[in-house]
Deep mutational scan, measured.
Amino acid sequence: RKWEEIAERLREEFNINPEEAREAVEKAGGNEEEARRIVKKRL
């Protein structure tokens, strides 16, 4: 699934746990840019 690939990239890029990465992607509706913004806000 594409969402899992996005979550994996976010996890590696921001050094967050898989659960946090998945939550961000879900919140963003699968949009990678939006997920990235969500993760950055949390850091």
Rank of each mutant, 00 (worst) to 15 (best):
R1W: 03
K2Q: 08
K2L: 08
W3T: 15
W3E: 07
W3S: 15
E4S: 07
E4N: 14
E4Y: 03
E4W: 02
E4Q: 11
E5W: 05
E5Y: 08
E5H: 13
E5T: 14
I6T: 14
I6M: 13
I6N: 04
A7L: 06
A7F: 00
A7V: 07
A7P: 05
E8P: 04
E8A: 11
E8Y: 03
E8V: 09
R9K: 15
R9G: 12
R9S: 10
R9T: 09
R9A: 13
E12G: 14
E12V: 07
E12A: 08
E12M: 12
E12R: 11
E12H: 03
E13A: 05
E13V: 04
E13W: 02
E13M: 08
F14G: 03
F14V: 03
F14D: 03
F14C: 04
F14K: 01
N15Y: 01
N15L: 14
N15R: 13
N15G: 14
N15T: 13
I16E: 02
I16W: 02
I16Q: 03
I16S: 05
N17R: 09
N17F: 02
P18N: 01
P18S: 14
P18Q: 14
P18G: 15
E19Q: 10
E19D: 01
E19M: 13
E20M: 14
E20C: 08
E20H: 09
E20V: 08
E20P: 09
E20L: 11
A21I: 02
A21D: 00
A21T: 04
R22L: 09
R22D: 10
R22M: 11
R22F: 02
R22K: 02
E23M: 04
E23G: 13
E23C: 08
E23P: 02
A24Y: 04
A24E: 13
A24C: 06
V25M: 11
V25W: 03
V25G: 02
E26T: 04
E26I: 06
E26C: 04
E26S: 06
E26D: 14
K27L: 07
K27T: 15
K27H: 04
K27E: 11
K27S: 10
K27M: 11
K27R: 09
A28P: 00
A28T: 14
G29R: 11
G29M: 05
G29T: 10
G29H: 14
G29N: 04
G30D: 07
G30P: 02
G30V: 02
N31K: 06
N31S: 11
E32N: 06
E32C: 07
E33G: 05
E33K: 02
E33C: 09
E33T: 08
E33L: 05
E34Q: 06
E34D: 08
E34G: 09
A35N: 00
A35G: 04
A35H: 00
A35L: 00
A35W: 00
A35V: 03
R36L: 07
R36Y: 03
R36E: 13
R36I: 09
R36D: 02
R37I: 05
R37L: 10
R37V: 13
R37E: 14
R37K: 15
I38V: 13
I38F: 03
I38N: 13
V39K: 00
V39D: 00
K40Y: 05
K40Q: 14
K40T: 12
K41I: 01
K41N: 15
K41E: 12
R42A: 12
R42V: 10
R42W: 08
L43P: 15
L43E: 05
L43G: 15
